[in-house]
């Protein structure tokens, strides 16, 4: 979990606009950087494509959890009503599946929601209370009007001098090295 992990330092560079950030993201992906990220005050259309990000596996996590919930609940209602404690209610057959549709549905939804919530936390490496990137004062602009690219020091291609000059060559300004924890 993010709380216990020491995080590496970063090199960050500022860009003027969404356009130049998108362009920079493309260049970064092209140059083969892996542990880099783009920061902007709002989501930018086409950023996933520019950064060559793979589609999130969230759908499969949620789908699996939902299926587990559904089959589990069908098994539970079937077993309790046929073997565990069979009862005749309003003259209907022991296992009246219609009566259990709501609970089967609800548990599928509950487990899907758990999958979505905890899966999201895990994929985002949350909870994480601090990130070295906040060591940069200039980076505070990111919630207002700043567009940044950051490269982590544990990127296989990372080399302070090279990264700095590369970020400048693709239009980055105020290039800054932030120390790790």
């Amino acid at each position: 979990m993010g709380i216990f992990k020491k995080l590496p330092g970063l090199t960050i560079a500022e860009f003027d606009s969404t356009g130049s950030l998108l362009h920079a993201a493309e260049k970064m992906a092209e140059a083969g950087y892996e542990k880099y990220d783009c920061h902007s005050p709002f989501p930018i259309h086409g950023m996933d494509k520019a950064m060559r990000l793979k589609r999130s596996p969230m759908g499969y996590i949620i789908g699996t959890m939902g299926t587990i919930g559904m089959t589990g609940m069908i098994a539970l209602t079937y077993w309790t009503n046929t073997y565990g404690y069979p009862m005749v209610i309003s003259g209907k057959p022991a296992f009246s599946w219609q009566a259990f549709i709501p609970v089967i549905f609800a548990i599928s939804i509950l487990l899907s929601a758990f999958g979505a919530f905890f899966g999201m936390l895990a994929l985002n490496k949350l909870p994480q209370l601090f990130n070295p990137i906040f060591g940069s004062d200039n980076f505070a602009k990111v919630t207002n009007d700043g567009f940044f690219v950051s490269v982590e020091a544990n990127d296989p291609k990372y080399d302070e001098g090279n990264v700095k000059s590369f970020l400048e060559s693709i239009g980055g300004k105020n290039v800054e090295v932030v120390k790790g924890e």
Binding site: S90, G91, K92, Q98, A99, I101
Partner: peptide, 12 residues
């Protein structure tokens, strides 16, 4: 469709 069927099935 399910809701329509379900309530009628239940009350019978």
């Amino acid at each position: 469709a399910g809701s329509q069927y379900f309530l009628i099935w239940y009350a019978n």
